[in-house]
Design a protein around this nucleic acid. Structure first.
Length: 270
DNA sequence: GTTGAGCGTT
């Protein structure tokens, strides 16, 4: 059952490969096997997974032993609802090594080395989901050496690079525009570490909220530092830094109240 | 935890 795809290509000499598209990211070979096996002898089922996340990429390859059975499976299973999605079943056009395939069967061995490596003239794709992947990988790319070496090993396979070759080189405007909601979430909690990297001076409850850093000490504040119930909240501090105008904004909406406590203190107190 | 055009591994 689960042995599909784990032992490598068992026998591609006389098999007919079917490409299954639009399967869910949770669909496994075990889920597909009973379906396809009903229409013929299934030699192998392979679901390409992402090397980094290990998740399914959303399509699968089913290899039949006989062409007529494969053809029948295409006819019967194409458009079939699997796991809530309508799958697309068709004969594979390319082999594992970029061989040309006719009706799922390899009719040509790997192309000449000096010739064009990959004659896969595919229509331009958009790959918008690379955005999430890219940021996701960078996040867990703590060990770059592993990720790097892994990519090197698979260098030459455009399908491994097609997803990476698009971003990075895009204009900054484009990048910011293509950010999805996931990026927003990440940025939302980014400030957290910013606070962590702040200097200790900013960590302490900042009594200096007046525009004049020199005269930060106020007698009233020193005498009653607890006057403001939320004046020492870390969240408040962070908010102040962003607002850059803490005193101009009063919780009650009275700007005068902020400065009224000691208008002369600001200049006469020292 | 999410997503959705397409062609593949120990």
């Amino acid at each position: 059952m689960s042995h599909f795809g784990r032992t490598g290509p068992p026998d591609i000499s006389d098999t007919y490969s079917l490409l299954i598209l639009n399967i869910t990211f949770r669909t496994t070979a075990d889920d597909l096997f009973p379906l396809f096996d009903k229409y013929g002898k299934v030699v192998d089922i392979f679901i390409p997974k992402d090397r980094r996340t290990g998740e399914s990429r959303g399509f699968a390859f089913v290899r039949y032993k006989y062409a007529d059975e494969a053809s029948k499976a295409v006819d019967r299973l194409d458009g079939r609802m699997v796991d809530g999605r309508e799958i697309t079943v068709q004969f594979a056009k390319y082999g594992p090594n970029a061989e040309k395939i006719h009706k799922g069967r390899i009719i040509e061995t790997s192309p000449k080395p000096n010739s064009r490596h990959r004659s896969r003239s595919r229509s331009p794709r958009k790959r918008h989901r690379d955005d999430y992947r890219d940021r996701d990988y960078r996040r867990r790319s703590r060990s770059r050496s592993y990720d790097r070496s892994e990519r090197d090993r698979y260098r030459g396979r455009d399908r491994d690079y097609r997803r990476r070759s698009r971003s990075r080189s895009a204009s900054p405007d484009n990048k910011s525009r293509r950010r999805g909601r996931y990026d927003d979430e990440r940025r939302s909690r980014s400030p957290v570490r910013s606070v962590d990297s702040l200097s200790p001076a900013q960590h302490s409850p900042s009594p200096r909220r007046s525009p004049s850093p020199k005269k930060i000490i106020s007698p009233q504040r020193s005498a009653s530092p607890r006057k403001s119930p939320r004046g020492e909240s870390p969240d408040n501090r962070r908010h102040d830094r962003r607002s850059a105008s803490p005193r101009s904004v009063s919780p009650r909406g009275h700007p005068d109240a902020s400065r009224s406590p000691s208008p002369r203190n600001s200049n006469g107190d020292e």
